[in-house]
């Protein structure tokens, strides 16, 4: 019987388990995502050590690498400062960290890895971190009465009919944040796998143009959007008092 190309083994976009172990009585797997994540982390750690060495020496007239490092830090600080204002000092470390991590993860498809962000188990914790940051800041900087009023928002505070809907919309924030990143990266990965799987005899040089769109452009935009939305939500939770 003829089998469709999706059912054959040429097209392979799934996460694979590599190594099984027991964790507190549960069956757990080391998957391809872990391996790719480890490689991304190695790249980042190597870059960080090199950058730290260069900055520690700190030449008066910066060389090429020192210039690149300073440029990255300046640009990231500029992004955080532009959208968080006064509270940027506290958050630029966190935002820059997740920015660089998500960026390198997204464009690691260019290195032949399966991007770690194309696994929902990687993007959902990032969304949960944003969720925790939002509500930590809300509790820290706003009065309980104001939070209650905003949770009952279209109706007056003594009539909490709208409360469940507002709670659901708060819970939807991390889910939609992480699903957006996940689905974008996953769709890019699937498109590239389909191109290489179906057109493997003529996929010679022109897929590079598709890589520029699906890996570079889409990855950079989604990284930017994730960090932008995180900053918007967190500075909204901090309010005007800080």
């Amino acid at each position: 019987m003829m089998q469709g190309i999706l059912l054959s083994n040429d097209i392979d976009v799934m996460v694979h388990g590599l190594f099984k172990y027991n964790f507190l009585g549960h069956e757990a797997w080391i998957t391809t995502t872990h391996v790719c994540l480890l490689l991304v982390m190695l790249i980042l750690i190597g870059f960080s050590i090199a950058a730290g060495q260069v900055i520690k020496k700190g030449a008066e007239v910066p060389g090429t690498f020192q210039n690149i490092v300073e440029l990255i830090v300046e640009k990231l600080d500029g992004i955080v400062e532009g959208s968080m204002g006064k509270s940027a000092v506290k958050y630029r470390n966190y935002i820059s960290t997740i920015f660089i991590f998500i960026l390198v993860s997204n464009i690691s498809g260019l290195l032949g890895l399966r991007p770690p962000t194309a696994d929902y188990g990687v993007t959902f914790p990032l969304g949960v971190l944003t969720f925790i940051l939002i509500h930590y800041n809300q509790i820290k900087y706003q009065k309980p009465k104001d939070i209650w009023t905003s949770m009952c928002s279209p109706l007056p505070p003594w009539l909490p009919l709208w409360l469940p809907i507002n709670i659901i919309s708060e819970l939807a924030v991390p889910v939609s944040l992480s699903l957006r990143l996940f689905a974008n990266v996953l769709s890019g990965t699937i498109m590239m796998t389909l191109v290489y799987g179906i057109l493997k005899w003529i996929a010679l040089i022109w897929p590079a143009a598709l890589h520029v769109y699906f890996d570079l452009f889409s990855g950079v935009i989604q990284t930017y959007v994730f960090c932008m939305l995180t900053m918007t939500f967190v500075s909204g939770a901090i309010g005007d008092e800080a």
């Binding site: 939609s176 957006r180 974008n184 989604q222 930017y224 959007v225 932008m228 939305l229």
Partner: peptide, 9 residues
């Protein structure tokens, strides 16, 4: 770009 990314969801 931010608005478009939200609309894309």
């Amino acid at each position: 770009i931010t608005g478009q990314a939200v609309a894309e969801t």
